[in-house]
Structure formats: structure tokens, C-alpha cells
């Protein structure tokens, strides 16, 4: 089951990154934080998604070292 969860997490990574990117630009244009300032959020979101994927893969793999 968790393997499928990992596959889902991997598949939604792209769309969520795209959503974040769009939101940051929209925020920039509406006079909020400039994109050049808020871009690290992209890194954070990417890292969180990878981390979730890792945890899902580990949970699917009880023989793993975690």
C-alpha cells in the first residue's frame, strides 16, 4: 500500500512545485514579497516532498534500516 503512496507522492511532486511557483509569482505581482526573495520556499517545498516520499518508501520497506 505504501509503495503506491510513494508513487502518488512522486507523481504529485511536479504539480505541487508548479502550484508553488505560480503562487510565488502571483504574490510578487500583487505587491508582496519579491520572487527573488521568496524563491527559497521552492527549495523547502521540494525538500519536504522528497522527505515525505522517502518516509513512504521506508514505511513500505519494513526490512529497511530505518
Amino acid at each position: 500500500m505504501s509503495t503506491r503512496k510513494a508513487a502518488l507522492l512522486r507523481a504529485i511532486r511536479g504539480p505541487i512545485m508548479l502550484l508553488t511557483l505560480g503562487s510565488l509569482f502571483a504574490w510578487d505581482h500583487s505587491g508582496g514579497l519579491a520572487f527573488t526573495q521568496s524563491f527559497p520556499l521552492l527549495l523547502i517545498v521540494y525538500g519536504v516532498l522528497k522527505l515525505l516520499e522517502r518516509t513512504a518508501v521506508s514505511a513500505a520497506d519494513p526490512g529497511g534500516t530505518e
Binding site: 507523481a11 504539480p15 508548479l18 505560480g22 503562487s23 509569482f25
Partner: peptide, 28 residues
């Protein structure tokens, strides 16, 4: 456009998952 695009892909993938279609390797 980007937000809408991402949203559509996200909903599609969640829908595919519920309908148990195979998921793509990369969402985008």
C-alpha cells in the same frame, strides 16, 4: 496559468489514484 495548470494536474493525479489507474513517474 501556472496555478491552474498545477491544480488540474494535481486533481487529475489524485483522481487517477482513486480510480486505481497507474500513475505517471513524473507529474509534470
Amino acid at each position: 496559468i501556472l496555478i491552474g495548470w498545477g491544480l488540474v494536474r494535481l486533481l487529475e493525479i489524485v483522481y487517477w489514484r482513486i480510480r486505481r489507474f497507474p500513475l505517471p513517474a513524473y507529474g509534470i
